[in-house]
Design a protein around this nucleic acid. Structure first.
Lengths: 134, 134
DNA sequence: ACACTAATGAGAATCATTGTCAATAAACCA
DNA sequence: TGGTTTATTGACAATGATTCTCATTAGTGT
């Protein structure tokens, strides 16, 4: 019974759909805890561990972006397209996806210059958006 | 700037010196736990909480860089000069400080373009250094 | 040396995240 | 459709990093 095409056979559950949907509804980045709370407040009986698992799956499938907030918790965001970076408002959490091909190239070049291979990078820009900048 | 210990008077203790020194000795980024272990192995009786406090102080004084490792722990590094970024070997932890004025400007420009002010950013490059890339 | 009080350290407390495992329910097949 | 298989769930325990508590220790100015 080996599923050759879909790596490890996955099942579709309403829990995964709920997490995916809730993540899509959210504006900006949200933590697993926040998402779980929202779902429970909407009457869902989903478990916290399941939210964590679903988010981890989404992230590893490339359907969600992860980054660690400054106070050490992982926060997630629904993410449509391929590789990109974020411009995030520190006060309201609004997020703008930004293309960064120039920086990509710069990062790869710098790494290569120092003999590094298999490079990856973390690039995030934080600021105060115009709405929050009274 | 460097207003001396007037209102928030700080005291100099051998513990803080030990942490500062151990951090200077380390190559690359180290966690508070690792640093504590190293100090204890060298015969120090310093407490873990003190290592955490000393590192937090160094970081907020601008004498150390902080970043979160991918497995969710804070790692520190002695940092000589102003603003810069890092190229880090994923396997041996070797670190290269890189100047990134081009990217600085890019980041500020992108932020301004979207009406963001008071911008800051996180830019780190990870890879496998030539020594580790057998 | 003395007094004042910041800093220390041992352990408890916190908090996000992950592991455990019996019970549940997708997906597949006859 | 009903039965079987087994991935997935969820309640709770466990982990692990970091922070807090508080009695004790030790810098610093007088």
């Amino acid at each position: 019974m080996a599923d050759l095409n879909t790596s490890a056979s996955k099942r579709n559950t309403w829990q995964k759909d709920a997490v995916r949907h809730a993540l899509g509804e959210a504006t900006g980045f949200v933590s697993a805890q926040q998402l779980h709370l929202v779902l429970r407040n909407h009457g869902s009986t989903i478990g916290l561990a399941t939210v964590y698992r679903a988010l981890a799956d989404l992230a590893s499938a490339g359907d969600a972006d992860v980054l660690n907030s400054n106070d050490g918790e992982l926060i997630y965001r629904a993410c449509a397209t391929g590789h990109h970076h974020h411009l995030i408002c520190r006060s309201c959490g609004a997020t703008v996806e930004i293309d960064a091909s120039k920086v990509e190239n710069w990062a790869d070049a710098v790494a290569a210059e120092h003999g590094f291979t298999e490079t990856s990078h973390t690039i995030e820009i934080f600021g105060t958006c115009s709405a929050c900048h009274s």
